[in-house]
Structures are given as C-alpha cells and as structure tokens.
Nucleic acid binder design. Structure first.
Length: 480
RNA sequence: GGCGCUAUCGUCUAAGGGUUAGGACGGAGCCCUCUCAAGGCUCAAAUAGGGGUUCGAAUCCCCUUAGCGCUACCA
C-alpha cells in the first residue's frame, strides 16, 4: 500500500500548482488504495502565517478530495534533530562555524559553484566539539562524498534515471545555527519516519532529490520512489507568481468565479497529464482509475490566461461540460448560493424549473446571475424600447405583435407546448414571421433579446408576470 | 557562471522508428433554429534549428538555440 504526502509550507495562499500536486498525490493514493497524508511543512517559523494556513485549508476543502492523515512538521522537530545528530555521529555531517552571511541580492554575480568551506569540513572532531561546547553557533552540514568519482542516482517515475556527480553537490545544511532543521532534513526525516513510499512533487525539487537520496542513505533507510511533476507556468514562460499574475494563481479565484470543484480538478489534471485516449471530461472516479505516473508529461504546462481574463478558456469549457452533465437537483443546488448572493428571492420549485432552461447557457454557476435575472427580479432592469423592435421591422410591428399576443396569453393554458401552439398561430394571424412575432414578446418578458427558449420561459414566469411585462412594454412603445 | 531538466498547431495534448502527424480548447465558416446558447459538419493551424544513425526519424544520438529549475542557516 503506497503512502504519499502533500507537504505545503504555509507561506502563501494555496497556489494552483500546489493544488495540482495535491490532486496527483491524491489520485495516486486512491488509485492504489493507499494513504494520503497532509503534512504542513512549517519549519521556517519566521515566514509562516496563519492566513496562509487558513487559505491552504480553505482551498483544499473546496477541492473536496480529503486526506487520511494530517501532521504538522513543527511538532516533529525533535525527530528532525535526532536524525541530524545520527547523521553527524556516523560522520556524514560536520559543524560549520562560519558566521551567517547577509543574504546576497544579486545572485548572477557569483561565479563558480559554492561547494563547501574546506576549513570547516576538515575541522578535527575534538576542536569541533570544543567550539560547540563553548557555545559558538554552527550550521550542521552534510558531508557530501566528494572527490571519489561518486555518482548519485535515482530512478524518477516521470523523468527516468537521474544521475549527478557528487562533486557537483554542495555541502547543504541539515541544521541551522538556531538549532532548527532545514527543509531537506525535516522533509527526509519525516518521509522516512512516516513510511512515505512515493514522493510526488514539483519538478523544482528534481535537483534537490540528489541531496535527499544522500540523506536517506546516511539515515540508513531505502529512498522512496520519486515522481516529479512538470511545472505550471504563465503564457510568457515565467513561473506563476502572485505578484506578477495576481488571482490566476489562487484556487479560490476559480471557486469565486463559480467553478464546480471537480471540473476544476479535471482541468488541473489535464495540465501535465493525459489519459492518452483523448478523453477530456472525466469524473473524479474516472480520473482515479486512469491516473498513473507514466501518463505524466515532462515539459512545463502553460496556464492560458490573459491580462483581461484570468480564466483559462479550456477550464471554462470543461466546467460547462460538467455543468451540463449534472442532474437538475445538483445543478440547482450549486446555483443557489450564487443567486442568493445576488439577492434574488429564490423559490426551490421555481429554481428547479429554471435550471434546465439555463444549463446550456452558463459556463459557471456565477453566470446564472446575469442569465436568469428576469426570472427572479420583480422589476425588469431598464431596457431601451428599441430592443422591442424586431429584425426588419419597426415600432408599429412591435406594437402589433404585443397587442396581438396579449389576449392570446390571457386566454392560453400556461404550459410550454400549449403556448407554442397559440403563439405560432398568433404569428400567422398577425401576418408576421415567427421570429418577428416572438422577439417583441421575448424582450418584453425577459428585458433583452438573448434569452432561454420563449415558451418554456413564459411558462415558468406565469401569466400574471408575463401580462404585466407586456403591458409595460406596450406603454414604453406608446410613450415615444 | 556551474549542474540538472525540457522542446509537436496560439494553448492543453496523442503518436515513442513506417500515420494524409490524431483529439480538445480557442478562431473562421456552414447547418439546425423563435433569440442566445447547446449540438452537428467543414476549414485554418505544429514536430525550434543544424548535423548524424537508418531503407525510413516528430520518435534514437550529437551540437546549437530557447525556456525552466537548483546552486540559502526558504521551502
């Protein structure tokens, strides 16, 4: 049974790239009936924020996938320290008493790779012990097996065999001078302790993995299977960042835009992974069954957004597909919060009647607000009387149509099929083409030209509302 | 700078030695039609460049170019 983990650090909101990493881990776990672990990697106390933690949980809850275990890295520091010390005792690490350097702004200026501080690496143990005992601060560094023609290797489930000469790996830190573990140490110690079998994470960790392989070796435990994921990037090829790309990078943006969580999950899955059989719209179950690390790509995927529109058009299309596949009840339930937020007075039965009329006209839950407004508003939004005038017609024609339709509607059975018969008949009698006859009625009743099918709409609206709105429209035409 | 990874239509991708290089989004057009949608059909649109290997390369190898990542006492 595989054990996988998603390990975000709470230093920002839930990024869509992180969300995708979570999803892939979840899919892998569920596909293999394994365990999904959420581990908050919060060892950098200075940069952690509660807001970030809240945002991460908010985002993950919205995704509606869930997890089996939850851990907080900050509560496991003793394990990390013990592990680091064990590595030290085995001689795989050394104390580095070099004072911390101020952060360097311009990295490009540095020439040649920094590998180690030779004086510190070779410091005799007794001197090292003496200086440590005297309270001199130090970083604990990994003693990378250098100058032995040693190659560090691992098999990546996505990128294949990876090799790197140990001579190109720097003596990275395990413990900071404040005694807290670094990411590398904490992560590996926890992965080993938690029995993580597969590490599925962003490709930005691909080269870090050589260090991790070394740590696992020093710890005396077998390394897990690694599977690195291509990154999500902006249309210009740069990486997604909050500062430069704004709301595109936050999963809450999609929730607020009225996305169905599973549709968004579906979209994210298609970025960097493919079922290889041309399927695109997939349910959670189908994704679960189809997912494999072999299906993951190796090149970064562009999230296709623009300055004006933060939403990828394909995500929108996919969401529309999912919406169309939903049962009326479920779609109505999804719509409800957005309609209520717009202060519409929503009656359950009425909403259920409206749902099939708008489902093919909306791509997100939120789009129902402008599309279905006239069903809920007592007073139509103001519209120009010129809207009432049909194609190739004039004001007189609009009046003819409305005056003709009114008594018919007054007498008709208010049900779509009957209304259609009556109004088609009415068009003939009025000597108008159906389109010319229907448009003034539609605009009178809906307040705009583009609306759901007329007869069903009239049926849902009811006789009183329709007659009143037609009277208002006739008034509009007569007064100017 | 060093090391690593990547490169198929505008975007997401399929094809992994032999295909007219396939699908989807988006775009254009046509059909359907009471409007708008939805749906159906059609069209435009790609193997980064250069060398090899091979009867044959998008596919394997090398070089170049470009992008990305790592190179912190961040994760």
């Amino acid at each position: 049974m595989p054990r996988v983990r998603f390990a975000p650090s709470p230093t920002g909101f839930l990024h869509i790239g992180s969300a995708r990493t979570f999803i892939f881990n979840w899919l892998y776990a569920r596909h293999h009936r394994g365990t999904m672990i959420l581990r908050i990697d919060d060892t950098d106390l200075d940069r952690n924020t509660q807001e970030s933690l809240t945002s991460i949980f908010e985002g993950l809850r919205w995704l509606d996938l869930g997890w089996d275990e939850e851990h907080r890295q900050s509560e496991r520091i003793e394990l990390h320290r013990r592990s680091a010390l064990a590595i030290f005792e085995k001689g795989w690490a050394y104390r580095d008493f070099t004072p911390a350097e101020p952060a360097v702004e311009d990295k490009s200026r540095s020439e040649g790779a920094w590998l180690c501080n030779p004086g510190m690496r070779d410091l005799p143990r007794d001197e090292s012990d003496r200086r440590a005992a005297s309270g001199e601060p130090f970083v604990l560094r990994f003693r990378v097996p250098r100058a032995q023609s040693r190659t560090v290797s691992f098999e990546d489930a996505v990128y294949g065999t990876q090799n790197k000469s140990a001579d190109d790996i720097e003596d990275f830190a395990l413990l900071r001078s404040n005694g807290l573990p670094t990411y590398h140490m904490a992560s590996c110690a926890d992965d080993a302790d938690m029995g993580i079998s597969h590490i599925i994470r962003g490709q930005d960790h691909l080269t870090n993995t050589f260090k991790h392989v070394l740590i696992f070796e020093a710890l005396g435990v077998p390394a897990p299977v690694f599977g690195h994921l291509p990154l999500l990037i902006a249309p210009d090829g740069s990486k997604l960042s909050k500062r430069r790309h704004g709301p595109v990078v936050s999963v809450t943006t999609y929730r607020d835009a009225g996305f169905l969580a599973h549709a968004y999950v579906n979209f994210l899955c298609l970025l960097g992974w493919s079922p290889k059989d041309d399927r695109e719209q997939m349910s959670r179950q189908e994704l679960m069954e189809a997912f494999s690390l072999e299906g993951v790509n190796r090149s970064n995927a562009v999230v296709n957004f623009t300055e004006e529109d933060p939403i990828d058009p394909k995500a929108l299309w996919l969401n529309a597909q999912h919406l169309r596949a939903m049962p009326d009840e479920a779609l109505a339930a999804g719509l409800l919060p957005y309609l209520e937020e717009a202060n519409y007075l929503v009656d359950r039965q009425k909403l259920l009647a409206i749902t099939p009329l708008i489902r093919e006209r909306i791509r997100t839950f939120r789009e129902a607000v402008p599309v279905a407004d006239f069903f809920f508003l007592d007073q139509l939004a103001p519209y120009s009387s010129s809207e009432l005038i049909p194609q190739k017609g004039d004001k007189a024609m609009a009046l003819t149509a409305l005056r003709h339709a009114r008594p018919l509607l007054e007498a008709a059975d208010f049900e779509a099929e009957a209304l259609e018969a009556v109004l088609r008949d009415g068009a003939t009698q009025a000597g108008l083409k159906t389109g010319q006859f229907f448009q003034p009625v539609r605009v009178a009743v809906c307040g705009r030209k583009n609306a759901p099918p007329l007869f069903e709409t009239l049926g849902v609206l009811g006789r009183d509302t329709c007659l009143r709105r037609i009277d208002e429209a006739i008034g509009k035409l007569e007064e100017n």
